[in-house]
């Protein structure tokens, strides 16, 4: 049943597939960003309580959601890499991790910039913020570990192990911080969830979530192709590729 998938374990095939998919993701990113941000910034009505500052939601929520999605993808790739010994899955982890880390950073920074006018403080040890900060540390640990090994095959395997250890730990961290936080902070829990949003505000948010997903896909594909090229640079198909490129440019 899965035989059609087998050729893609070869780096060359995956490189070409990624190359075919990349333009679509780039186009999707541009369209969704333009429509989503235009709608969200210019046409969505101001919030009753938060005024125009709520417009930060159009990058904050998508970034936070996609940071989690990126890590989940990395965890699945790590599992596949360790169980079926597929090296391409390890390259995937290396490709996605920086994007996930940047998204987490964006979520934290925009959260702080939103929090200052709303809560009066740039930073509070709210359960969600704390969990997000720890997610950033986990991402940085994986990236640092991968870069520390000069043999990239070993690097990929180490990164897979660490990704899986981290994924087990993330729900634990989330719950521990929720309980820690509610014990000390008491009843003030900020509601940032969307169900209570008006449709004119909700649709741009959904478009931006799709937009961030498309961006995640586009940059991950680009970095995935880079990783393949770097690790397979001694192969004849890479040499042929480069010679073609040079011939095409001249």
């Amino acid at each position: 049943m899965w035989k059609w998938l087998h050729p893609y374990a070869k780096p060359e095939r995956s490189y070409q597939l990624a190359g075919k998919l990349l333009p679509w993701f780039v186009v999707a990113t541009i369209i969704t960003f333009v429509v989503g941000l235009g709608w969200g910034l210019l046409f969505a009505p101001a919030d009753y309580q938060q005024g125009d500052s709520f417009r930060i939601i159009y990058i904050h929520v998508p970034a936070a959601m996609m940071a989690m999605a990126a890590y989940s993808t990395m965890a699945i790739a790590a599992f596949i890499a360790l169980v079926w010994q597929i090296r391409l899955a390890e390259m995937n982890i290396a490709a996605i991790a920086p994007v996930g880390a940047v998204f987490t950073f964006i979520a934290l920074v925009t959260g702080a910039a939103w929090g200052k006018p709303m809560w009066g403080a740039w930073w509070v040890w709210d359960a969600r913020l704390t969990s997000e900060l720890i997610l950033l540390f986990v991402y940085l640990g994986i990236i640092a570990l991968y870069n520390a090994f000069s043999d990239k095959v070993l690097a990929g395997r180490a990164a897979s192990i660490l990704t899986l250890v981290g994924v087990i730990n993330l729900p634990i961290i989330h719950y521990s911080v929720v309980w820690w936080n509610t014990l000390h902070q008491g009843a003030t829990i900020m509601k940032l969830d969307k169900p209570s949003m008006a449709p004119e505000m909700l649709w741009p948010l959904i478009i931006m979530i799709v937009g961030f997903a498309a961006f995640l896909g586009a940059v991950s594909l680009l970095r995935f192709r880079n990783e393949i090229l770097a690790r397979e640079s001694h192969r004849p198909w890479v040499s042929a590729l480069v010679t073609d490129k040079l011939g095409g440019e001249k």
Binding site: S53, A113, P117
Partner: peptide, 29 residues
């Protein structure tokens, strides 16, 4: 932005800066 301009544009500015740096770094690599 209804008085919140500093925070909104700080958020959007830093976000786009981060995203652009990421893309430029990936292409440069």
């Amino acid at each position: 932005m209804g008085g919140y301009g500093f925070y909104v544009w700080l958020s959007y500015g830093l976000t786009f800066l981060a995203l652009i740096i990421l893309v430029v770094n990936s292409v440069a690599k």
